[in-house]
Design a protein around this nucleic acid. Structure first.
Lengths: 115, 115
DNA sequence: TCATGATATAAGTATATGCTTATATATACA
DNA sequence: TGTATATATAAGCATATACTTATATCATGA
């Protein structure tokens, strides 16, 4: 893998966004698969506006991408972002969030969408 | 290298501290060698109290260690910290701060202390 | 066209953050 | 003992942050 050097200022901006439990969990979730807002609300047990505001910060910074499918808006990790290598490394060193999505699925709360 | 999983909450706390240009630079500097406060002040061109306050945050979190030698207090990276793997990875992906120390040295502003 | 569900946005608020200036503390050295 | 240097701490202040509640937007389906 080629080593890319990320500008300090840009790295700091991304790290600031990662430096919040809620956003770090959100990124841990979208690392494994796309998620929609109501799933974050369910997993994180937080209000919908609060989640939306965190997502907006992540999206404004370009760390996540959004895609509407019907009534849902799905968020995914933007692996093209300049600071993605940092995010990737960080996510590798924290507990996997996959089980939380699995628990959602088992509770029948996972959103599946073909459109 | 063994892979250690860092608790999400603790990771977020460290990332928050890294998410500031000044502190990220400070950590980049102590990655290479011990530095004292006046060196940070010189390199970063910021007020001494401001630097001291950033150092206090880093020290309170345990990310750096301090050691007094005579009239100077030297700061160094605490490589035993639980979140050190994250810090290490991040520092590997941003520009090296070594030249800044070298410039200090050439300007005769580097503090050398044997005590 | 209307009601519902998913999401975004706005406004308000309490707290956190990062600087400033002023001052205290601690060491060195004459 | 007195002065200079290095550093820490305190207090004040402007701005940022992360919620809350209320409301707007947009797609779906009857």
């Amino acid at each position: 893998m080629e080593k890319t050097i990320i500008e300090l200022e840009q790295a700091a901006q991304t790290l600031k966004l990662l430096g919040d439990k809620t956003r770090l969990t959100i990124l841990g979730l979208v690392k494994d698969s796309e998620c929609c807002v109501c799933e974050f609300v369910e997993v994180l047990q937080m209000s919908q506006p609060s989640i939306s505001q965190h997502l907006r910060k992540l999206r404004d910074a370009g760390l996540v991408k959004e895609q509407r499918r019907g009534q849902w808006i799905f968020y995914s990790l933007n692996r093209e972002h300049a600071t993605y290598p940092i995010i990737q490394q960080v996510l590798e060193q924290i507990p996997d969030q996959k089980e939380k999505l699995k628990a959602l699925e088992e509770a029948g709360l996972r959103i599946q969408c073909d459109s």
